[in-house]
Design a protein around this nucleic acid. Structure first.
Lengths: 270, 270
DNA sequence: AGAAGGACCAGTGGTCCGTA
DNA sequence: AGAAGGACCAGTGGTCCGTA
């Protein structure tokens, strides 16, 4: 059937050119200041990706209204072929240079960062709706926003993933040059995504250092970053490094008994 | 014993001149820009109010460390007299004029508003500690702050009470003149606290109207008010009133079919 | 009756760990 | 092995309702 052909094709394309099922997304697409247009361009290629995996059968005990679940028209897809056409997860990320598209069953880092822009657009829509209804208006990407994204067909967006890479996106926002350089270096060395991700912490800690160790202020000062919670580990690293800097400064000044030294005093920032 | 004499005396004084058991409070007391000095003045009168009612015996099933609970030195207070020396709740509020001290087993509204100032001081202390430890720093009076207040001996502060009267405090912050006038009027009429509390909504809705119906912006613009969550009911009232105003304006302009009219257009604001 | 507040509850932020 | 994400959990905002 035509459906299956498209599905087969989308095996590679899925995560690179995710498609929206409802038109929430379209509304906000114009907000992208130049960025993200590339990903939007792939939209025409395949429509309707109604493959949201139903949760593992909650045993019919649930009292949920399943209005949303029954959205898809073909309930029996994949039943015929028996082949593993089950597309259960997004392709894993690989370290790519800026502008580089990942080949094979992989996703690149431009795509990763694009997901953050999409979340921002979903947040803006949630905010618009909330204001219109006179309800509490979220300022951050909350559970509510993730739920809204999923309902809008962006099933490839989920909380654990977005939280996992927030600090990588932060570096991309705050120092794109440094972020690009890091990507090129790690790609060249053939490092995996995990070690690139780890390496994103240090330059951020240095940025925090230059701003009196206030990582919250650094996030809040950036319009696209301010909607994301500061990751716990980044916060802890900044705190540790600040303590180190203070200790070092204290020694320089002449010993532990010297009080009066300010914790926000500048030392070297990497 | 001396303890019991003081306790008897405090029957009236308790809620009017609450005492701090630890010195957290003292640190921040200086932050009060003139306000609240009155309540602080009563401090010397009676020390130690170690009457926190232990919770109704959690049946020894709890695995809590009870370091905090064993703070008081006299574990057997009230055992001897047998009289109802059990001081289980704060005295109820009555409508008082500005500057008026409630008599009998009652608390006045200046005292009510003072509790909000105290919460602000506890928040500031929690924030200071959090920043120092490099932890997430609350911007609002959260559960954590209420817990801290209780631990600091301010057992008379609790979440339901503070949330209940937030909008009354808001009016006091935003238009003290109007707030004072309302108090005098309701006292004169012999109204109870509940109806005074109800009456505080309307002037706030009018203030919101003058600010484009954005009650969040109104709260956030005021330094002492911005730390409090906008109460649900106030938010709903503002929303309803905005819709009424929009509908009225639409009729004036010439009928329901006239689109283009902005929801933020000014009508009369009360 | 009017009012204070313990205690509950749905939905949150955070992330582990069973999964592929 | 490296990585994606369902699902869990402790503590939150919100306020009801048993209490005095």
């Amino acid at each position: 059937s035509t459906h299956h052909a498209l599905d087969a094709l989308s095996q590679e394309g899925l995560s690179e050119e995710p498609v929206q099922q409802q038109d929430h997304q379209t509304d906000a697409a114009g907000n992208n200041g130049g960025e993200g247009g590339y990903w939007e361009a792939g939209k025409g290629k395949m429509k309707k990706q109604q493959q949201q995996r139903r949760r593992k059968k909650p045993m019919l005990t649930s009292v949920e209204t399943d209005d949303d679940v029954n959205e898809g028209e073909d309930d029996d897809n994949g039943g015929g072929s028996g082949l593993g056409t089950e597309r259960q997860r997004e392709h894993p990320f690989i370290v790519t240079e800026p502008g580089e598209v990942a080949r094979g069953k992989k996703n690149g880092l431009d795509y990763l960062f694009h997901l953050y822009e999409q979340c921002r657009e979903f947040l803006i829509q949630v905010q618009t709706i909330a204001k219109d209804r006179g309800e509490k208006c979220p300022t951050k990407v909350t559970n509510q926003v993730f739920r809204y994204a999923k309902k809008s067909g962006a099933s490839y967006i989920n909380k654990p993933k977005m939280r996992h890479y927030v600090h990588c996106y932060a570096l991309h926002c705050l120092d794109e040059e440094a972020s690009n350089a890091l990507r090129r270096a790690f790609k060249e060395r053939g490092e995996n995504v995990g070690s690139w991700r780890q390496a994103c912490y240090k330059p951020l800690v240095n940025i925090a250092c230059r701003h009196g160790w206030d990582i919250d202020a650094v996030f809040n000062a950036h319009p696209r970053l301010s909607i994301w919670y500061v990751p716990t580990k980044l916060r802890q690293l900044c705190h540790l490094e600040r303590n180190n800097a203070v200790a070092a400064a204290t020694v320089l000044v002449g010993g532990v008994s010297c009080t009066g030294s300010s914790a926000s005093g500048r030392g070297g920032c990497g």
